Amino acid sequence: MCKQDYVFRGLGVTLSGRGRIPEAESPDRHPLIIAIHGGTYSSRYFDVAGHSLLDRAQAQQLPIFAIDRPGYGLSADYAANAPSIMDNAEILDSAIHGLWHSYSHKACGIVLVGHSIGGAITIAIAARQPSWPLLGIAISGVGLDPVPASKDKWNQVPAEQALVSVPPEAMDGFFFGPPGTYEQGVMPQASYGASAPAPRSELIDIGMHWPKQVGRLAAQVKVPVHYRQPEFEQLWPVDEATIQRFADAFVNCPEMDAALFRDAGHCIDFHRSGEAFQLQQLAFAKRCAARA
């Protein structure tokens, strides 16, 4: 399996990222997985040692890429353009189109994995009904309307400040569950290397505009959806009824697998139960491929 950094291009924007490509093609039908990170994290979110979705996909001989979204990595300067969730969706749709047609593979289609703001962007991409073969989406850490405390704080950032740098330790209380749900002495410190400055515009957008958009976008998703919301979520209201209301918004998706995920905070991947969560996502991706 090839492990390296990659460059992608979408609508003239150069995007960085990382991935794993199988050295030999599997005889089975398999998906190409593309992971889309959330705010204040780079694509490395999916590649933290011991908690890496890329490594777990590699173990199953599944090709996978994680892309640095507009305003991150090589495209950090793009933050000055104040990219929104919909801008992200348009640019990434184009970048994934190029990847699909340039990557030498036998994958039967693409499954998107999106976390937090990346989950919102994943929904927006699926709502575009892209020209490349989208098989399904797996999303987490996103909902109908964030809790007031998680969106009001970004309004205090000056409008002329394109990028917001947040000390990772300042976000631990929002991103992690209580002690015992993650490995003490390892997390959250191991996650700090995946932290990155975030475009102010997307942090404002997820609180101000997303609640008005999500119903319309969810109704346009026509592929299977895997949705997990963590028990100790601090950024979004979470209970069984709220999860069901979110799931019900996807009125045209052929299959919805929505559930509360126990023993984890917002960044499920970094918790003790993160392996089980990622294996669920990979199993979902393989089911989507088997039905293609």
Rank of each mutant, 00 (worst) to 15 (best):
G19R: 00
R20D: 09
I21Y: 01
E23S: 15
E23G: 15
A24D: 12
A24G: 10
E25W: 14
S26H: 09
S26F: 05
P27I: 07
P27S: 10
D28F: 14
D28G: 13
R29D: 15
H30S: 12
P31N: 01
P31E: 00
L32G: 03
L32V: 08
I33F: 06
I33K: 02
I34R: 04
I34Q: 03
A35S: 09
A35R: 02
I36H: 04
H37F: 02
H37K: 05
G38A: 05
G39V: 04
G39H: 03
T40I: 14
T40E: 11
T40S: 14
Y41N: 08
S42C: 09
S43A: 13
S43T: 03
R44E: 13
R44S: 13
Y45L: 11
Y45T: 08
F46W: 11
D47T: 03
V48L: 08
A49S: 11
A49W: 10
A49I: 10
G50P: 04
G50H: 05
G50Y: 04
G50E: 08
H51A: 13
S52P: 09
L53S: 09
L53E: 10
L53R: 09
L54F: 05
D55I: 03
D55V: 04
R56V: 05
R56C: 10
R56W: 14
A57L: 04
A57M: 08
A59G: 11
Q60A: 13
Q61K: 13
Q61I: 12
Q61H: 14
Q61R: 14
L62R: 00
L62I: 07
A66E: 00
A66Y: 00
I67W: 04
I67T: 07
I67G: 01
D68P: 00
D68I: 00
D68A: 01
R69T: 10
R69I: 07
P70H: 05
P70M: 07
P70R: 04
G71Q: 05
G71R: 04
Y72R: 04
S75W: 08
S75L: 08
S75H: 09
S75K: 09
A76H: 14
Y78P: 07
A79R: 02
A80E: 14
A80G: 09
N81E: 15
A82W: 08
A82T: 10
S84C: 05
I85P: 01
I85W: 02
I85H: 02
M86Q: 14
M86R: 13
D87N: 08
D87R: 05
N88Q: 11
E90N: 12
E90I: 11
I91W: 02
I91M: 08
L92M: 08
D93M: 12
S94T: 06
S94M: 04
A95C: 08
I96F: 06
H97P: 06
H97C: 12
H97G: 13
G98P: 07
G98D: 12
L99G: 02
L99H: 06
W100T: 02
W100E: 01
W100F: 04
H101Q: 14
H101T: 14
H101C: 10
S102N: 10
Y103Q: 09
S104H: 15
S104F: 15
